[in-house]
Design a protein around this nucleic acid. Structure first.
Lengths: 193, 193
DNA sequence: ACCCAAAGCTGAACTCAGTACAAGTTCGCA
DNA sequence: TGCGAACTTGTACTGAGTTCAGCTTTGGGT
């Protein structure tokens, strides 16, 4: 990894930290992009060269961690299992990318529920890869089936994240993710698993 | 229904029609709220008293139709069936609220994918009622199970809407909704239904 | 050690979404 | 006919997001 790239990542993290620090103190709406840029020691223009929007700075995933997760996907770490089980573990791996700041993010969404949709936007970063992965493992690359599997699995994942209490341990979250995906995979029409 | 209320609904529909007419001509980004208000013969301020945002005017559901759907829910039209089957039919009923402008809305989302999240926002109007309905029909009102059932069913529904080709008949959409919910309910871990 | 092209940073100026509010208008209803 | 509530409107403001031309940094090659 070149030096230029390392600097860029450092800047990214500086801005994000500054943003979440301010947001966790004052709340999302009470912090302007100007404030964040100043706190991070860059200009407003530079802020927008790193993050496409104010929401993004609160919810985007760390580029390096994301890249590492993509590597897991490419290497087919879980490919010895049946589709849904492998998918479950991939989502557990995604959950591992959300540590540290997840409590803050949850408080942000609690405060202004309108941002729940923006929060979902952070999935856009890994969604295409995951969809392609599913499609590859499905007969014919059936489009409808692919979309359905991906969307419902994602919904189960989001349910787990929303249900998790930040006061509980992080392992609790991983277990919740497994539970939700197991239930969804087993069929929600059945009374209870 | 009082006269005042009828006028309000009429105004709502006038603004929405104007908006979708302009948007389908020029595209979402090329139309400003100013343009829409002018086309509808009202002021910008009035526009925002009817719609909380520019996205809302493209995606919100007709208040009257929504109210009628709520009535279905209250009357328990499908309550003689098992939970998931009843839920499926309720989503089919929701789908019936999306006729006319759905093709335009799909084109809008195609053009600027960033709006896919906003599109999801139109579900906020019926989501609370539906969640409560599910919770009522679940033992103990189990919160996690309620969230999971609701979120995955919604995901299946959205999958059907996204998969539907506007050139196909509307019944095709209703059938897609049933198919997606049946698959999701049966359990996606199983190879194929 | 030096050079230079590319990459990155910045301030200024702009558009437009969304909010607040005070003043005016309409209209159902008694 | 007149009252009060609901609706409308213009104005003025904040802040997100874009564009761009010019400045500084820097890292890789000679």
């Amino acid at each position: 990894m070149g030096l230029r790239e390392r600097k860029k990542l450092a800047a990214w993290r500086t801005i994000r930290s500054a943003a979440l620090r301010l947001i966790s103190e004052r709340g999302f709406d009470a912090v302007s992009v100007e404030d964040i840029a100043t706190e991070a020691g860059v200009s407003r223009t530079t802020f927008f060269s790193y993050f496409p929007s104010k929401e993004a700075v609160a919810f985007d995933l760390d580029p390096l961690e994301l890249q590492q997760w993509r590597a897991l996907l490419e290497d087919g770490v879980h490919d010895d299992r049946p589709l849904w089980e492998a998918l479950t573990e991939l989502f557990v791996d995604v959950a591992r990318l959300l540590p540290e700041w997840l409590p803050v993010q949850k408080r942000v969404v609690q405060d202004c529920p309108g941002l729940a949709n923006s929060a979902r936007g952070s999935c856009d970063s890994f969604a295409p890869d995951l969809r392609a992965w599913i499609s590859r493992r499905l007969p014919d690359g059936d489009e409808l089936r692919t979309a359905l599997v991906f969307n419902t699995a994602l919904a189960a994942f989001m349910t787990a994240v929303e249900a998790w209490d930040p006061d509980d341990s992080f392992d609790e979250l991983l277990e919740l993710v497994r539970t939700c995906l197991r239930w969804a995979g087993a069929g929600l029409a059945h009374p209870v698993s």
